[in-house]
Design a protein around this nucleic acid. Structure first.
Length: 190
DNA sequence: CGTATGCAAATATCT
DNA sequence: GAGATATTTGCATAC
């Protein structure tokens, strides 16, 4: 009787996953030989079905068009991923939930466990291959966002100095911002 | 506090 | 379509 408490991500409980994450497949139909639709993502097939690479692909074709992500490559990527993540000062759990913000179709959030396993290469090869592009996308996005912050000075001069008085001289500013907040309630770092 | 891992549930895919 | 088997992923908890 685990009280499926508050998980970090929106799509928490495994029983009430109403977040329609349609499953996505990173492999082409040819590779699998034959693949029905994919998954009739019923209302329950949330994240659990999200990422998958070919299950038991025989790999008979000398894929010239496909870049077979070798174990070597995965290994180095996982390594770099971890380093850069830490450099950004982000935890595994943060990454997991932040993935949802990428808005990649079919990709929701992932748990800290999964991120950890990815970094330690303790996932199946196919799973790794499937996750790689996603995490890669997140990494670039996160670094880009940080760069942006570095460029800009401090938006508010808070901190050790005396906080600058919030001079809302007129209501003009407020009026200009409100409309934005209506459409983007949760601005995120971007 | 952040990370690693055993275990089991939920699906996907195969036969 | 049903049952069996394979995979992926999260929770709980130890480290």
């Amino acid at each position: 009787m685990r009280a499926l408490g508050e998980h970090s991500c929106v799509c928490s409980a495994r029983t009430e996953s109403a977040v329609g994450n349609s499953s996505l497949r990173w492999l082409s139909p040819e590779e699998r030989g034959h693949t029905p639709p994919v998954c009739g993502d019923t209302a329950r097939s949330c994240h659990r079905t999200a990422l998958r690479a070919l299950p038991t692909a025989p790999n008979l074709l000398p894929d010239l068009t496909r870049t077979e992500t070798g174990p070597r490559e995965l290994e180095s990527f996982a390594e770099r991923f971890k380093q850069r993540r830490i450099k950004l000062g982000v935890t595994q759990a943060d990454v997991g939930s932040a993935l949802a913000n990428l808005k990649i179709p079919g990709v929701g959030c992932l748990s800290q466990s999964t991120i950890c396993r990815f970094e330690s290469l303790t996932l199946s090869h196919n799973n790794m291959v499937a996750l790689k592009p996603i995490l890669e996308a997140w990494l670039e996005e996160a670094e880009r966002a940080q760069r942006e912050k570095m460029t800009k000075p401090e938006i508010y001069t808070g901190g050790d100095k005396k906080r600058k008085r919030t001079s809302m001289s007129s209501f003009r500013e407020e009026h200009s911002v409100l409309p934005f907040l209506h459409v983007q309630i949760n601005p995120h770092f971007e």
